[in-house]
């Protein structure tokens, strides 16, 4: 059950309490180390202090929205993997992908969908590391 890949620490950014709790429970169940943040500002500070591999980030948030958080986070760490969560992902996914998100999932999401996204993220992580010339 525990992931054998490179992805270890996952950050969940959402202003809705139930989503944070749901995703945390789900990913902890999968064996990941999970961090949470209520908005973009909080997320940035977590990214700065912790070694985060993957971020699930809501788009509509007070203070700092998802896309801004993505932009700023990638400045801090260009290899950071981002998955955006939103009610209307179709409109957003292209813009999000352009600035570096690997995927977008629509709320409300199936828990299986989240699991498969994490698996895909593992694959992405491998590619990124290969690109940097690091062999696992």
């Amino acid at each position: 059950m525990a992931p054998g890949g490179r992805v270890k620490n996952i950050l969940i950014v959402d202003d809705t309490d139930v989503i944070r709790r749901l995703l945390s429970e789900l990913l902890i169940g999968e064996g990941y180390q999970v961090f949470t943040a209520c908005d973009g500002e909080e997320a940035i500070s977590v990214i700065q202090s912790e070694s985060i591999d993957l971020v699930f980030c809501d788009v509509h948030m007070p203070r700092l929205n998802g896309l801004e958080t993505l932009k700023r986070s990638r400045k801090l760490n260009p290899d950071l993997l981002f998955v955006m969560t939103d009610s209307l992902p179709d409109e957003l996914s292209e813009a999000a992908r352009k600035i570096g998100a690997i995927d977008c999932i629509a709320k409300p999401f199936d828990i299986e969908e989240v699991r498969s996204i994490v698996v895909r993220a593992e694959g992405f992580y491998e590619k990124v590391l290969n690109a940097h010339g690091v062999r696992s």
Binding site: T16, V18, I19, L22, L26, K107, P108, F109, I111
Partner: peptide, 18 residues
């Protein structure tokens, strides 16, 4: 409406699946 409803719906769907 979509945004407002989808958050609680996400919770409902997720926990129901759990």
């Amino acid at each position: 409406v979509a945004h407002e409803l989808n958050n609680p719906m996400g919770g409902i769907l997720g926990y129901a699946q759990f």
